[in-house]
């Protein structure tokens, strides 16, 4: 009797899991299709902040081929609708084509006319389907693809370095327990004279 009860409970539990999974999947898919609708309030665009993640924010600005600008958006919603960007500078509006990064739906970037450091721009994010306004904001370009110069105590390599090579085909190049990349050597013997660096970071706990 107890055995039957146990088996029945297990079956019910598994059935429940499958039902919940199925139900939630369809709900999720429906949500994915719907995304932002015209009735929803317009999002205020700002730079992304680690402590308070907005639904849509700008992570960075950059350049492509030195004559175009890149705008890097991040959203918290993987089902955020497809959109395009319009930027107004000195009263002139330009269109920027946006695309979602493949396999990373929360990363979206737009490419268009070059923007300069220090400029103040007005942004409008418009739904690609019906062109309704999803988000807007005014931003000053306070940083533009200029990372802080990295300095360390390592001595630059004087001779041709040891090199390694990996292909992009389905051939991971991994030895034994710890994945590394296969090493190929150039003709000159390497002389890496930099500071010794642990491959695993010094695990002092933050």
């Amino acid at each position: 009797m107890k055995k039957n009860k146990f088996t029945i409970s297990i079956n019910i539990f598994m059935g429940f899991i499958v039902l919940v999974t199925g139900g939630c999947t369809s709900l999720f898919n429906r949500n994915s299709e719907s995304g932002q609708t015209p009735g929803q309030p317009v999002i205020e665009i700002a730079y992304c902040n680690v402590n308070s993640q907005a639904e849509l924010c700008i992570a960075s600005f950059g350049t492509e081929n030195e004559n175009k600008s890149l705008v890097n958006f991040i959203t918290t919603d993987p089902s955020f609708p497809d959109f395009d960007l319009k930027i107004t500078r000195d009263g002139v509006q330009s269109a920027y084509e946006c695309r979602q990064v493949e396999d990373f739906p929360t990363s979206i970037y737009c490419v268009g006319e070059k923007i300069s450091l220090g400029e103040t721009i007005e942004l409008q994010v418009l739904s690609r389907d019906d062109e309704h306004l999803i988000a807007k904001g005014v931003l000053n370009i306070s940083f533009l693809a200029l990372s802080t110069p990295i300095t360390d105590s390592t001595t630059p390599i004087e001779t041709a370095p040891q090199t390694l090579r990996a292909t992009a085909t389905q051939t991971p190049l991994i030895p034994t327990e710890t994945p590394t990349v296969t090493v190929g050597r150039t003709q000159t013997t390497p002389s890496v004279t930099g500071t010794a660096v642990d491959s695993y970071p010094n695990s002092s706990y933050p």
Partner: peptide, 30 residues
């Protein structure tokens, strides 16, 4: 062996292009 030290190690998987590695302290001015 050698290991990647930045996101470049993900290029074969996520960008589908072959990579070639060199020590990060490589002097590009030479």
């Amino acid at each position: 062996g050698f290991t990647g030290t930045d996101a470049g190690i993900w290029i074969p998987s996520l960008a589908g292009r072959p990579i070639f590695g060199a020590p990060y302290a490589l002097n590009f001015g030479k």
